[in-house]
Design a protein around this nucleic acid. Structure first.
Lengths: 334, 334
DNA sequence: GACCCTTGTCGAAGCGCTTCGACGAAGGAA
DNA sequence: TTCCTTCGTCGAAGCGCTTCGACAAGGGTC
């Protein structure tokens, strides 16, 4: 193993100079810096992570807590995870994977052993039991998701309430008068998943404001067909549907087609989901983007800011962005 | 932060004794050990990860390289990842997430900085470009997947060839004479994904041995319907289908149903996929398990063995296990 | 009883890095 | 010229842990 003293010897300087040349924490002459860099290249030097963590009190590792609950869409979660890893690398950090099962013990462990410098937690519930611990632990953390109270926390999320509203308003502008929201499986609402509830609120509020008739229906992945039938039966005037449930989107569209409805002429469909999901549907779907990429990057950026001691806002909500893809159209009055 | 000297003082022993009590690397009297343990509990001591890594030359962290290629089934991949994390925790290790994008540079980094003790790599291609590096790096590694040559490596996988054979033989025993394999998207074969090709080999070999007529058809996620139609058109005598493509399984079954075929009376369907996928299909599917749980655990166990200096076999193939779920039946001769 | 193990513990020496204080040299202000 | 800064570098002191060698005490063995 090549160490800092080897580099120092080769460059004809002291180890501390190498360290400063690398970190930039003290001025080093251009000439010396170049010599050091050359020595590093020639020897293939890489600082030992453990030694660095010990002496520098920074591990350059972040923990990422990924959810494994039922009713979540795994590819969407992975999208977040990948964007967090990518963003972390841009800041010269690595990412440690923590599963939900590990729970509080896992958080304690990585914090107390100084294994990680900070923490990104996904899929936060409205009243998440881990929040008190998170506030107590003195480990900088950023949540992806918005709990009931953000006091003392740092959260980023899509503004799901506004996203629900945006979908309804889009349909309202197109003349629709009767809309439905097809949401996540019931369990997701039961356990208080923040974003799910917020979409419902936004959807309902916007529909009420616009004087539209509206329904909300949770939906299991396998029940797309049944839900489609139920909607048409109970809400015969229905012409607009908002889908907030990735795995159900395509089956639902298929079910409507099988029931003889054409999209968008008979029925306008819009969704809240990652662009990839909306694009790759057989019928491309007009949707509000779930910007995993951007959310993950924001979360990491905020975490880095906290690590550098800067103050950050308690909550950052991204405004919804709607992309038309032809699955919505003007209501054709029958 | 509470450190080992604090514990030592409290327990009335020296730091080295605390260390030995913790690691068990030297005999410590029962009585002393208890006193140390109590001090640890009272103070809430946790050894500093960096210090431990530096002094002990072990970071107690593994790297997990997860694939992000197109055409893979993300929930299946996550199943592996979770099982690796869980298994690693049983061995007191944490898991660092490396994405494919990081590529060779990522491997180099975690190895050279001693960030991790070992490495688990998923989704190995037949002729994976990372293999030479992996052999060169002196970082213990285990692959999930079986490349063309396992020389100098350690690999675990389901015996996909045998799995393909098992499916055909199952259908043969039930009297079927004409079978088809619906596989992954073409790109997966093109890039030489090991398991995909092996299933084809096993499937074809077994069908030939049994004197059955057989076809192999790759399939994109969206093309289930088209593939079903194509199969019936080109192979009218078809009565048995093997599906090796998780996202396509359910749509394909639906497509056959729509085309008027009853399962299993008109058509027997079997699959190679995680049990969860086979069970949660609308029609539960007789399948060969893809034992993510077990494979992940095995991979980690093998890695731990390597870390302790023991010799391990170059390749470990798990025998296929078939579970009947009612989607296959005796061929009813027309 | 002399000798040798084994058991249980301690002190000290690192592991490879960062950081602090110190200091010579050079430049500016007076 | 003198004094004060700033710049660029060095040496040494840790960071918190593991491990090595040493050693006292006790128990077998002959």
């Amino acid at each position: 193993m090549v160490k800092i003293t080897d580099v120092a010897r080769r460059a004809g300087v002291s180890p501390s100079t190498v360290s400063y040349a690398l970190s930039g924490k003290r001025p080093i002459s251009e000439e010396t810096r170049l010599r050091v860099e050359e020595a590093i290249r020639e020897l293939g030097y890489r600082p030992h992570a453990g030694a660095r963590a010990l002496a520098g009190r920074r591990s350059n590792v972040l923990a990422l807590v990924v959810p494994l609950r039922t009713g979540i869409h795994v590819p969407t979660v992975m999208g977040f995870a990948v964007s967090v890893v990518t963003a972390a690398r841009r800041h010269d950090h690595d990412v440690l994977l923590l599963t939900q099962e590990e729970g509080e013990e896992g958080l304690h462990r990585v914090a107390d052993t100084a294994l990680v410098d900070g923490l990104v937690m996904m899929d936060v519930q409205l009243d998440d039991p881990r929040l008190p611990l998170l506030r107590a632990l003195d480990l900088p953390a950023v949540l992806i998701g918005l709990p009931a109270s953000t006091a003392g926390l740092t959260c980023v999320d899509l503004d799901f309430r506004a996203a629900g509203e945006a979908c309804v308003e889009h349909l309202a502008r197109l003349g629709h008068r009767s809309v439905a929201l097809v949401g996540s499986p019931p369990e997701v609402y039961v356990r208080g998943t923040a974003y799910a509830g917020r979409v419902v609120q936004g959807f309902t509020a916007a529909a009420d404001r616009a004087g539209m008739s509206s329904t909300v229906l949770p939906c299991e992945p396998a029940d797309a067909r049944a839900v489609a039938e139920q909607l048409l039966r109970e809400q015969p005037a229905l012409t607009g549907v908002v889908v907030h449930n990735e795995p159900v989107l395509e089956p639902l569209v298929d079910a409507f087609a099988d029931l003889g409805l054409r999209i968008p002429s008979d029925l306008s469909v819009t969704a809240i989901c990652p662009d990839g999901v909306a694009e790759s549907s057989r019928v491309p779907i007009t949707s509000v983007t779930l910007p995993s990429e951007e959310l993950g990057a924001r979360a990491v950026d905020l975490l880095m800011k906290k690590l550098s001691g800067a103050a950050v806002p308690e909550s950052t909500l991204l405004a919804p962005r709607m992309t038309e893809r032809g699955s919505t159209g003007r209501r054709t009055v029958p």
